[in-house]
Nucleic acid binder design. Structure first.
Lengths: 340, 340
DNA sequence: ATTTAGCACTCAGACAAACCGAGTGCTAAC
DNA sequence: GTTAGCACTCGGTTTGTCTGAGTGCTAAAT
């Protein structure tokens, strides 16, 4: 439905606007060396492109900018794969060179790289905890009133929580209790911990010694910590560099939106595998109307999938971002492979 | 050297400017009910105040704004103690109501409260680790290639680090090693851990079994983690709400400054006990020329002192901030008391 | 039947002049 | 010593003009 020439023009407009952030006029298009026809012809074609909704004017005599439909078409059909620059490649390679062993560290670093390399804001969603299982539970008494419960999962995640110990409980009792718990809870998925504690173990412990009950209640409070999937945000202030966010009010409302952790998590989570883009209105939140969100998934182990995302203005360097996120998610996945 | 009347006028100017952010004119001053004399008199006095450097004009026919010297004088001599509002008091009280047992949690929450209540940016420096001692070291093997070293301090701080385990080391050996380490390192201040590991323990372990050496090296890498004093920043985006930061360039350079963790840490650390203010030029960094930094200390245990700070424009609500930080630092200190 | 040159038209942005009003300093009267 | 009055200053806003980059349309050229 679009002619060869219109495709070409659309491509030029989007490419140009992405780099300059200025409306693109017919004259500047006709001067490109890929364009062999005059500005008048371009104008005619642009009128058609506008009629079909791929581009629009900012005012009656302005050049054209891509509409959201235009961006969508560009992303779906006109994207030219881009080789990453040496700088980009080496930055990533170096970052992953030293053997990182902790999930958090890898994710933090990845978020940092991504935002530094792109000048956009990176958001990384930790993998779902579905399959995370308890590896070991430990209790370290601090003094006679308090102790720390430490919980290690099979993915190497460490969670800890201080709690009060009622004075009447001897530390040897506590130790016994931990031993029992460990034998019973080893391998239990974290999300079932709560329920397991209530049902089986509660009874079990009670039958062992009545005396444990008090301690158990305390311990329970320490263990049953809701553990929301973590969101890592990098380069939040990069938003300020984008000319489309000259308006402080927009910045503020965007910040307000991305700071709602649980909602952002839902937003990212809903995506399935591969790289996806949500352009402007395709995003559910008002504050993100002028934004695009590129998401890509990475895997930790076999089942767990997390998401890395990049938030920027709709006028984003889509092709570079695609390559970058592709490479990064692969690096992350391969770093995680063989850990779990 | 300043007359009673000049003090009064200065006070009015600062108070007014702090709330409105607009230069204050003689007419609006003379209309205040505390002012019994005419605007012409005010003008005369203001000319004197300007000559002595306490106030200044933004242009030849503008009202006056406080100079830094003016702010300094105001803070030192004119500050009227302010009762906190019920809302503020209850917010703080509620936050500290549920018994928090972990240092991080308390600090995070405090930073949140502070920035929410003030609309400025809060910066909290964790206490120095001078006296933090190793309570217990534990190792949790994840699989046959890796394990997690967990380090618990007497303050309840938990540090963990995954590391590779050479295949040739049996987990029982590892266990033995940990036992030895625990008996030797218990109570050792964290900052000496490095040195201790090198000197005594290295030899000790080696003499025990040569085989340990490899594992020891790996473990060492895991344990000797530089542990920079942590900086917690809250309400970073509040800066955007201040009219003096309409200029994005200023915001950017300020962000760049406060994001340099180690330098900010030094800046906060240098302060001794009590509440202090650094106004404008008194701050070492260019980007903070228009800012004031209020710092207050809190104590964790007896020796450890940390700092809570509030960063805002020089036009800050000093009296409210003073009260707020005072209350908060007391809450923090008393929460920590009896923990360690 | 396309393509292009030419031309009238539009509009944002830059610039200047005019105006307004909130403020000042100064002087003279109280 | 205080105050009323007045001339003056200057930032901010409004208004008007101009310019240049852009458009759409028409008619000529290919």
């Amino acid at each position: 439905m679009l002619t060869e020439r219109q495709l070409l023009i659309l491509q030029v407009i989007v490419d140009d606007f992405i780099t300059t952030a200025q409306p693109v006029g017919s004259r500047s298009i006709s001067k490109k060396e890929t364009i062999t026809f005059s500005s008048a012809t371009v104008r005619n074609e642009m009128a058609d492109l506008e009629e079909s909704g791929f581009i629009e004017k900012t005012h009656s005599s302005s050049g054209r900018i891509p509409s959201e439909k235009g961006y969508r078409f560009y992303v779906d059909h006109l994207l030219s794969p881009l080789r990453l620059s040496n700088r980009e490649i080496s930055t990533i390679r170096e970052a992953f060179a030293d053997k990182m062993m902790e999930f958090e560290r890898v994710v933090q670093k990845s978020a940092g790289i991504l935002s530094d390399l792109t000048n956009y804001t990176s958001i990384i969603l930790g993998p779902e905890v579905f399959e995370t299982k308890l590896k070991q539970l430990q209790i370290v008494p601090l003094n006679d009133q308090s102790a720390i419960a430490i919980l290690v999962t099979n993915t190497g995640h460490v969670e800890h929580r201080a709690f009060n110990v009622p004075v009447e409980i001897a530390s040897t009792d506590l130790e016994k209790m931990v031993n029992i718990l460990n034998s019973r809870l080893h391998g239990v998925p974290l999300i079932q911990l709560h329920e397991k504690l209530y049902s089986e173990i509660g009874d079990l412990l009670k039958s062992h010694t009545d005396q444990y009950e008090g301690a158990f209640r305390y311990l329970q409070a320490a263990l049953v910590e809701e553990q929301p999937t973590k969101l890592y945000i990098g380069g939040k202030t990069n938003i300020l560099m984008q000319p489309e966010f000259r308006d402080l009010d927009k910045v503020r409302s965007l910040y307000a939106t991305i700071e709602k952790e649980s909602e952002m998590a839902d937003l990212l989570r809903s995506d399935d595998e591969g790289i996806h883009v949500r352009i402007g209105q395709e995003n559910p939140y008002d504050a993100m109307q002028n934004c695009s969100l590129i998401t890509a998934s990475y895997r930790l182990g076999t089942d767990q999938i997390g998401t890395i995302a990049l938030l920027g203005p709709t006028r984003m360097e889509y092709n570079r971002m695609f390559s970058l996120m592709n490479v990064l998610s692969k690096h992350m996945t391969s770093t995680f492979r063989g850990w779990y």
